[in-house]
Design a protein around this nucleic acid. Structure first.
Lengths: 199, 199
DNA sequence: CCCTTAATTGTGGATATCCACAACCCGCCG
DNA sequence: CGGCGGGTTGTGGATATCCACAATTAAGGG
């Protein structure tokens, strides 16, 4: 699990105190003084979580959040704010923010939520990674192999597939063997488990 | 889709005005003057959504919410409050509340959220129904059949299963055929698709 | 004690799958 | 032109699956 926390707050005192708190508990904290700075450093591969102040000079935390959503951010976002209101919190959470905390807040409380966020990120990344690995294997399939895979996943026998595609059963067998090989499965059931949920 | 809205608020004026609003848009509104009253009427089969005031005489809306969670409530809960604060909203949403709205609120806004909640409920119920149907079929399986199903889902051949269970392959075939019949599937792939995600 | 249900096994034949070995056609690219 | 990759097909044999027909054993309930 990554122990990286990104902190965006335009108040240096907060950056220092929170940074100290996080690091004293064994987390790595990287601080940014503005939304723009973080945006410049952001990449889809960042792991960890994001502590985000709302009221800031320039781009606000909420605007940064929206922008990150567009960019496909997967980092759990924990809003930190001194002047939040209910609709703001509700909207942020419904858009997928991980948490919304008012400053000042209890150190233990905050640490707990940050750790939760890091957990969530770790499990998100794990499932994203396996899904990526599946995608890369899918890309190695030829058109015909993908087509036949669909029919296998529809629970059809080789014979039926051959009929539907107007090719010999032997050909279906070959494609089937090849695609199993490429997908790294040994049986149709494994393939089905690998693929159910996507598509 | 159900058009039933349950409204719990101890203020008669609110019950009347909201009830009127909802009914004027074609929804059915059933109002309760206290958490206790609703609790008495509640059953797991209720469909629709729940509009819940927080500050009330006796049990508060939040307490009712917690109690309903324990009871396995699946109705989307839309909190309505005149005196909510941010931590309260955050905690409610993180516990699974559907929304958290401050009174007074815009009629159109509220209607939109209520309709959303009804949609969510409808789709929840649809998937719960199919999952229920699967469960009831699972219950009809004998212990042995369930056991063999596990091994099939692990992608094992009848032969291997027979070895592992120290029984004849013929027996495995029989159980397999029976459980396919009971589960309403024709192939192992279909079974796998039915079962992946649960367990 | 009888009946039911679950679990078990056998026989035998029709089908289906798996696989090694070989081969042909075609379009694309250097 | 020659090579390469993708799609195609065939043969034949070893395995596996599917299924109808038949039957035994053990446990639990009425």
């Amino acid at each position: 699990m990554s122990n990286q926390v990104y902190l965006v707050d335009d108040d240096e005192a907060i950056r220092d105190s929170l940074g100290w708190l996080l690091q004293s508990r064994g987390l790595t904290c990287t601080a940014f003084a503005s939304a723009e700075e973080f945006l410049a450093a952001w990449s889809p591969q960042l792991a960890g979580c994001l502590l985000l102040d709302i009221r800031m000079q320039g781009m606000s935390g909420l605007q940064l959040f929206d922008r990150l959503l567009e960019l496909g951010n997967r980092l759990p976002v924990l809003f930190l704010t001194g002047h939040g209101d209910v609709p703001m919190a509700v909207s942020a959470l419904k858009k997928g923010a991980f948490d919304f905390v008012e400053k000042p807040c209890d150190d233990k409380e905050l640490m707990g939520r940050v750790l939760e966020a890091l957990q969530v990120d770790a499990s998100n990344r794990a499932s994203a990674a396996s899904s990526e690995s599946i995608n890369s294997r899918l890309e190695k399939l030829t058109t015909r192999e993908r087509q036949i895979m669909e029919l296998i996943l529809a629970g059809k026998f080789n014979k039926v597939i051959a009929d539907e595609l107007q090719i010999s059963m032997r050909t279906v067998e070959v494609h089937r063997a090849n695609l199993f090989e490429k997908m790294g499965v040994r049986t149709a059931v494994e393939l089905s488990q690998l693929m159910t949920g996507r598509r």
